[in-house]
Design a protein around this nucleic acid. Structure first.
Lengths: 167, 167
DNA sequence: CACAAGATGCAAATGATTTGCAATTAGCAT
DNA sequence: ATGCTAATTGCAAATCATTTGCATCTTGTG
């Protein structure tokens, strides 16, 4: 199928907005292609397109969001779902859930553990990326006090952004 | 030191286990009936049963979990879904999402803001309730630095409980 | 260039949650 | 008690996000 990547940020969708600001600078797609090959996974047109789209997002994007940005019927929804599982399993994307029933994904660069959180506006759904998190010690305390290991956490913030504070 | 988990539910249940341990002591149902009346909502048999079941849980429970605990076909699933929306809207229950696609609910006593989090075992799904959270200042900083108001957060921890650490 | 392991498209299947609608019921007035 | 009306419920059908079966097509390799 096609194989080219040439999508421009498509305007506004009602879901969570994701206008603008390229995030990853250099076209990281080849970097990911390499990672795929190393695990004997194929670098297909669909995956390239998906990675390409992911690489130009500044916020987590939904499966449907990805699909909508792909030229016409370039790639089936099922394929995107399958790809996201694969990429997630390979640690190339991270899954987020903002509580609206749809999973959202963000690309993870090599060596990036992607550990950060989001501040989501409950009014317009704008997303702000947060990079501080001081959860480390709390997590550690939990390990000790409850005997759990491999403790991770999911943390997201919700509130009203300046624009939605009407009045 | 200690590695005690207060739970010891076999693991037969598929979903998240909810070992007995009554939580709210006194039958709080009448308290809730009162709250319902105050908002001109009816105290129906279905609601009483649901509140009763919720009141005897020690961890968040799913809709299906509630349904399974109701005598035979005592109350329709749709009714439980509708009730949970109502109760959530009235601040009588709090919704949690542990990432497995099903919502879970916990009853909130009068004056209880229900602010706490959970430590969920990724192996057997045992749930430990956590009551510390030190997110307050982080939240406040967020308000200031991004101009958001009414900021809240969702925070859940995941890890392997002592029993599931075998191997 | 042939091949087998992988991938993909399409349609049908799941699973959780919602909704339309007619039948029932709780809470208040009579 | 009895009646009345709005709130509720059961049931079935509808949504929605996500999965999966399967036949067909591709990629990476020899």
């Amino acid at each position: 199928m096609s194989g080219d990547c040439d999508h421009h940020c498509g305007g506004h969708h009602e879901g969570l907005p994701s206008c603008g600001a390229q995030k990853g600078t250099r076209g990281g797609v080849p970097e990911f292609a390499e990672r795929l090959r190393k695990k004997s996974r194929r670098v297909t047109g669909a995956r390239k397109s998906i990675l390409d789209i992911l690489s130009r997002q500044s916020h987590p994007i939904t499966i449907r969001g990805i699909h909508d940005q792909l030229p016409k019927g370039d790639c089936d929804l099922a394929t995107i779902y399958r790809s996201m599982h694969l990429l997630e399993g390979m640690g190339m994307v991270k899954r987020y859930e903002f509580g609206d029933g749809q999973a959202r994904f963000e690309l993870l660069r090599e060596g990036d553990d992607g550990h950060h959180h989001h501040l989501v506006c409950t009014g317009c759904a704008v997303v702000v990326e947060l990079h501080e998190c001081g959860m480390g010690e709390l997590e550690a305390r939990m390990v000790l006090s409850h005997g759990f290991t491999r403790v991770t956490h999911k943390l997201e913030f919700f509130g009203l952004c300046p624009r939605c504070q009407g009045g």
